[in-house]
Design a protein around this nucleic acid. Structure first.
Length: 616
RNA sequence: GGCUCCGUAGCUCAGCUGGAUAGAGCAACUGACUUCUAAUCAGUAGGUCGCAGGUUCGAAUCCUGCCGGAGUCACCA
């Protein structure tokens, strides 16, 4: 039976051999679903074959069609239009296809292949809560974890927690000065720990800005302006901000001092740091749960930020790196059109890329994974290009399995989100908004009044989060996406709830009648409608969709597919009667079909991290 | 300036390893719930696929140039 494209292709290859004694490779055979305006189920493109068999396309299509009709059991008819050979399958093909799908447990999944993939995503900072940008990162990362699992990989989801540096010191300092020793729940019982710490981060920045504004009219500032012959003052002060923080600011000095105390291991500073980090991580854990993020292993920047030095030594020995007179260590990548890159400062401390070199090596020691996938925004493309090149030159054994899943930043209608300027869409707020939207919509519809309030709450969460997750994941990751907070996330049309609704309709039917599903009666159905064939064609594609989405690191392919399937089902549901079908065979067949649609929808949405409700 | 990515309907996006008349959703307008859940279905309207060349039997898709937008080219992370 021909259910996979490869089998169809080899049938065509054989036909060419028999008819013309010509060998063509199966790659030369192009297949596609027949367009709606033409008769037929599958179309074979004859144009590419014309080169091998010197004939005009239409004549070739006709001879090929005649041969296939005679020799391939399931092909019952054909027609040829120009170079397009449309073949028509018999009824047995369709029932056979349904059986083929139905019989497979874990349909679409490949068996375990014994290979390991490590996926890093999320990577939060511990000085503020997550925002919409993190949501995209997390949803993509979590979906990739499940996609790789579907392909037989053992996956290790991991995150690196950016828990050190000047930013967290700012929050610490502000809390120390302004917090009055209050704990998160004391200040506001409703506020999560990450928001609490984030609040102090913002307070620091406000205080710093005030200080800076005041300083701008001081004698010291005026002196600098005179010395540097500044023309545009506003522009100068904008650019001077960093230098001011490092050299002139009182607050800046305090924060820097705190960072130095942290580096020295000052007990009091470390204790405060631990405290604030744990508040943030507690808060973020909540957000993770709702987003479906889960990590097998956390790496902390505070523990790994200097471990790359061993690789630097290795690179110096093998000549990948060189040392300058000032003591700094560099890699020269100009031979492949990239720049020189510093890997160790003149004072011997690490830079960002040194840490990444180190963690790569550490992770390999920890897990011996052969694939390393980094889910990181596209602004870091160059960084990863350099990183991967360096690891390759260092001869690391996993260097060929590295991949940067680069995704576009989420933008607001008026530009990029900037946390300092307060133009961020907070992750928790957004999730709450979408869930209450789902609640309001559901209340209007009144379908679930019989459920307990606890069940209803779970349901609203499923629908709201389903809408949000689908909204983000349906867009190709590599494209930057525009999110307008003023337009709420849709619940109708190409959305998560639309797909959930298809599932709910099926579950609702099955509550009324399951007997027909368990018998084999459906195999006798023979009056297939186009809407039923459309669904079967889609069901057949599911395994291919999973493997392509994985290979291309692109969950949006799966999201698009699931919409197609749900759409085909909604049309089917509308056009034909199922429980009250014309014949018992028809009823059994349609229910069997629906059950398989439900299971593929649930499986696919599950990979996207979206739960499916039984009613809505 | 170098490199990378993007430009498709009013908006948000599919389609891009070349194939038949470029597709969805939203928004607008029309119709379909006494019949399996209308978060649904059917329809109308909406397009110089950024522009100009080239390759090809055939280009939204591949190549070149240009225009517009974003990112990056830190002893920041």
């Amino acid at each position: 039976m021909i259910y996979m494209q490869e089998e169809m292709k080899s049938a065509v290859v054989e036909a060419i051999r028999a008819l013309y004694e010509v060998e063509v490779h199966s790659d030369a055979i192009q297949l596609s679903a027949t367009r709606k305006d033409f008769d037929g189920d599958q179309t074979i493109l004859v144009f590419p074959l014309v080169r091998h068999v010197k004939m005009n396309p239409e004549a070739l299509a006709n001879q090929l069609g005649t041969y296939l009709k005679e020799h391939v059991k399931i092909i019952h008819d054909f027609n040829a239009v120009k170079g397009f050979l449309n073949v028509v399958f018999g009824e047995d093909y369709w029932t056979g296809l349904l059986q083929w799908v139905d019989e497979r447990p874990d349909y679409g999944y490949k068996p375990k292949n014994g290979r390991r993939a490590l996926i890093e995503y999320s990577s939060p900072n511990t000085n503020k809560p997550l925002h919409l940008g993190h949501i995209r990162n997390i949803l993509l990362g979590a979906a990739m974890v499940r996609l790789f699992e579907s392909q037989g990989y053992e996956v290790i989801p991991t995150q690196i927690i950016n828990d050190r540096g000047i930013a967290i010191c700012k929050s610490m300092l502000a809390w120390k000065k302004l917090g009055g020793g209050r704990l998160p729940k004391e200040e506001d019982p409703e506020m999560k720990g990450d928001h609490f710490v984030g609040k102090y981060y913002v307070l620091f920045d406000q205080a710093f800005k005030e200080e800076y504004m005041k300083w701008q009219t001081s004698d010291e500032a005026l002196q600098i302006i005179r010395d540097r012959k500044v023309e545009d003052q506003a522009d100068f002060f904008k650019k001077f901000k960093n230098e001011y923080f490092n050299r002139h600011s009182l607050l800046g000095r305090e924060a820097i001092e705190m960072l130095q105390q942290w580096e020295r291991g000052d007990l009091k500073v470390r204790a405060l740091w631990q405290q604030m980090n744990s508040w943030v991580l507690d808060g973020i854990a909540h957000t993770y749960k709702r987003l479906g993020a889960d990590f097998q292993k956390n790496y902390y920047e505070s523990e790994v930020y200097s471990i790359g030095k061993a690789l630097v030594v290795k690179g110096l020995e093998s000549g990948v790196f060189y040392r300058q007179e000032d003591g700094s260590v560099w890699a020269d990548l100009e031979d492949i059109g990239m720049d020189k890159k510093i890997v160790l400062r003149s004072d011997g401390t690490s830079v960002y890329i040194t840490q990444d070199l180190g963690t790569a090596s550490l992770r390999y020691d920890d897990f011996k994974a052969e694939r390393f996938i980094y889910v990181v925004a596209d602004e870091q493309e160059y960084h990863f290009k350099v990183l991967f090149e360096l690891l390759k030159r260092l001869g690391e054994p996993y260097a060929d399995g590295l991949h940067h899943l680069s995704y576009g930043m989420v933008e607001l209608p008026d530009g990029k989100m900037k946390s300092r300027e307060g133009t961020v869409v907070d992750a928790d707020d957004l999730m709450d908004d979408v869930v209450s939207l789902a609640r309001a919509e559901s209340k209007d519809r009144g379908e679930v009044e019989s459920l307990s309030s606890e069940e209803q709450k779970t349901l609203y969460e499923m629908i709201g989060m389903g809408a949000l997750k689908y909204f983000i994941l349906k867009v190709n990751a590599k494209k930057r996406m525009v999110f307008n907070p003023a337009d709420s996330v849709d619940l109708q049309g190409q959305t998560g709830p639309y797909i959930q609704n298809a599932f709910v309709r099926i579950k609702s039917m099955l509550r009324k009648d399951t007997d027909a599903v368990t018998t084999g009666e459906w195999k006798r159905y023979s009056q297939l409608q186009q809407v039923e064939k459309d669904i079967l064609v889609l069901l057949k594609e599911y395994p291919t969709v999973l493997s392509t989405a994985t290979a291309e690191y692109n969950p949006s392919l799966l999201a698009g597919y699931l919409y197609q399937l749900a759409k085909a089902f909604h049309k089917f549901y509308h056009d034909v009667r199922i429980l009250s079908a014309e014949t018992p065979e028809a009823k059994a067949f349609r229910l069997k079909l629906a059950v398989n649609v439900a299971s593929v929808l649930q499986s696919g949405m599950g990979i996207l991290g979206i739960d499916m409700p039984d009613r809505m």
